[in-house]
Computed example of a mutant assay.
Amino acid sequence: MMRHLSPLLAAALLAGCGDSAPPPAEPPRPVRVATAETRTGGEVVSLAGTVQPQAEVNLGFRIPGRVAERLVNQGDRVQAGQVLARLDRENEDNNLRAARAALVAAQAQLVEARNNQWRQAELLRTGFTTRVRYDQAVQQFTSATSSVEAAQAQLAVAEDRVGYTELVADAPGTVLTRRAEPGEVVAAGQTVFVLAREGGRDAVFAVPAALKDAAPANPEISVALSDNPNVTARGRVREVSPRADPVTGAFEVRVGLIDPPDGLRLGATVTGRMQVSEGGGIELPASALVRGEGGAAVWVVDPRSKAVALRPVEVARHGTTRITLARGVEAGEAVVTAGVQALRPGQVVRLLGEAR
């Protein structure tokens, strides 16, 4: 009898083992979404910068010496031709007197050589001297003439060196920095003053590479004083550094200010605003973009089932924080912006909130 019951019991046991409970349903994954918006204009970005002169020059003496006088201070406005500092000129004055004396001596020798040549010429004509003596007189006259020319050149150099003892502003401007004081010995060409020439001011910004590449050609930039936004000026890009800063990776961009008010003084902190893109499209936060099999894509949430689908898109413009799509998403659709890397097609999600 046991032999007849064993197969039945075994079949019952096997049937009981096959009726396992279904696996629990996966809970919806929390994500943050944004509603796709139709953008009619471009993105406006703001960057902080400073006002700097368009032309900044280092001024120094052309000869070495000891600074005797400093006639201007940092922040002073100077005019073209104004004396900024003087060197002790005692050595140069002595050299000038020596050069003048040398010229007088050379001129006296020239007069003597000229008279001797004239006498030898007369004697040679009457036969009372030789041709050799006459040629010697001509040579002495030529040598004396050269000596006078050399003495005149040395006098000009000495006069120039006396003039070089005065450091003169070559153009009107403002003294930004002074780097030498009276009594200090300076070398030739050593910077004594840094002068900001008048004639133009720039607003200088450190611009990220992505923003530099996205900027339109010849954009107009609005520049406002940071602590007083009512003080404004228009500007145009005047110069873009070809090399990025090795630390920040940003490029220096100089914006020439057009008729800047006095409030936009040198060194002031300003805010520049520029429209980096134009035209319409569907705009989304840049964090929504992922890499799909065929290129760029976004996760779109079905409004009824709350399931996500990976939608290929075509990106028209990349901004610093937002992107503009040419096609792939319709206005009003919900697009995942946070948690995009952990999703799979058809996965049900739970919305944490809607970021505009």
Rank of each mutant, 00 (worst) to 15 (best):
E37P: 00
N115P: 00
I282F: 04
P312L: 03
P261Y: 09
P345D: 14
A48P: 06
F128Q: 15
F141M: 15
G295Y: 08
T324F: 03
T40V: 11
F128L: 14
L257T: 07
R39F: 03
Q341L: 12
A101Q: 13
A10P: 04
D76Q: 10
R29K: 14
T177A: 12
D202K: 01
G16N: 10
R161G: 00
A244W: 07
N94Y: 04
A224V: 09
C17D: 06
N95L: 09
G279C: 08
A342E: 10
S277E: 08
A268W: 03
R178I: 08
M1S: 14
A98C: 04
L352P: 01
P172T: 08
A233V: 06
V313N: 02
G294A: 13
E159I: 02
R234S: 14
P30L: 08
M274L: 15
A102G: 15
R97C: 02
R178V: 12
V132P: 00
R100E: 12
E159S: 10
V157I: 13
L284S: 03
T337A: 12
A15L: 15
S6F: 13
G183R: 00
V31A: 05
G346L: 12
R356L: 11
L325T: 05
A244M: 10
S46G: 10
A12T: 07
L310S: 05
E56S: 14
D160C: 05
V51P: 01
D245R: 09
V276Q: 03
G41R: 14
Q79S: 15
R356D: 09
A214C: 02
T50Y: 10
D202E: 09
V175D: 01
G281N: 04
A144H: 00
D302L: 13
E293Y: 05
R254K: 15
L351F: 07
P216G: 08
E252F: 01
G75E: 01
P53S: 09
V335S: 01
V207K: 01
L225T: 00
E181T: 11
A151R: 02
V67C: 01
A169C: 12
T145D: 13
V207F: 02
P312R: 04
T324C: 00
S226W: 05
L266D: 01
A158Q: 01
N116P: 04
G267N: 03
S6K: 11
V336W: 06
E293G: 07
G163F: 01
P23G: 08
A25R: 14
T321P: 00
A150Y: 07
R327D: 12
I221K: 03
E26K: 15
Q107L: 13
G173R: 02
G256R: 13
L5W: 13
N94P: 00
V255F: 05
A338R: 13
A338T: 13
V162F: 05
A151Q: 05
V308M: 08
A99P: 04
L47S: 07
V301Y: 03
P303L: 12
V185G: 00
D93H: 11
P23F: 04
T130V: 09
V168S: 08
R236S: 11
D213F: 08
R350I: 02
A48Q: 12
Q140K: 15
G346H: 09
A188N: 06
V223D: 01
